[in-house]
Write a protein that binds this DNA or RNA. Structure first.
Lengths: 101, 101
DNA sequence: AAGCTAATTAGGAAACTTCCTAATATCAAG
DNA sequence: CTTGATATTAGGAAGTTTCCTAATTAGCTT
């Protein structure tokens, strides 16, 4: 859980998360989106994986990374708890980021 | 804004925030709550101040720190935005990361 | 001013992060 | 098994973070 905040503390990693929010991506696709070497991106992806924020799955010669939304949601919950100790055991629902599914 | 996440990435600093959420506190009060030297705590308080997460105000020979809730709330907003695309940026929206929690 | 308490700044050691290039592994296809 | 593409691991330089002790600043009281 500390790992999650550590992982979120680097802009490139937050940007990777933003990319993965749209859809799962191959490693090379992510590396190509940055002005950093591929090994550096692999390192960031490993941090994210260690923090439980992403999953990796081999697919032929490629590896597909996908966001683990639940881990991000936990981080939100912790922050929310710091902001205002409450919406954890008490579903007030004033946040309303509900979607139509 | 990157500073906020950096600041949140250390457990002691999150714990300080938790203490300040209850009420404003004197530097020494905070230092006493930790198993670290007072100068080290001063350092963490300075990080939090630089990140805009706390305000400091002199009070006699003491200094009182208070939480800046709005800065924390901004961090929540950014995270929330990562979790679930909010009405803010590009409408790429064909995503299908079906939530199954 | 001198003494006391509260807190910060200075300086530095140890550990960690970030990023690179070079080397290696893994898989698919010929 | 060799080649080509995809991706990771290894090793290391440069910078940053974390934490300590010692020195200093700031305000109050006498």
């Amino acid at each position: 859980m500390n790992g999650v905040f550590k992982a979120l503390s680097h802009p490139a990693r937050r940007q990777i998360i933003a990319m993965l929010r749209e859809r799962p991506r191959l490693s090379g696709e992510i590396a190509a989106a940055f002005d950093m070497s591929w090994p550096t991106i692999t390192g960031h992806l490993t941090s994210l994986k260690d923090a439980g924020l992403v999953d990796a799955e081999r697919e032929g010669t490629s590896i597909r990374y996908r966001l683990r939304l639940s881990a991000l949601e936990e981080a939100v919950a912790v922050l929310l708890d710091l902001v205002d100790a409450a919406p954890k055991a008490d579903p007030i629902g004033d946040l309303d980021h509900g979607r139509s599914d």
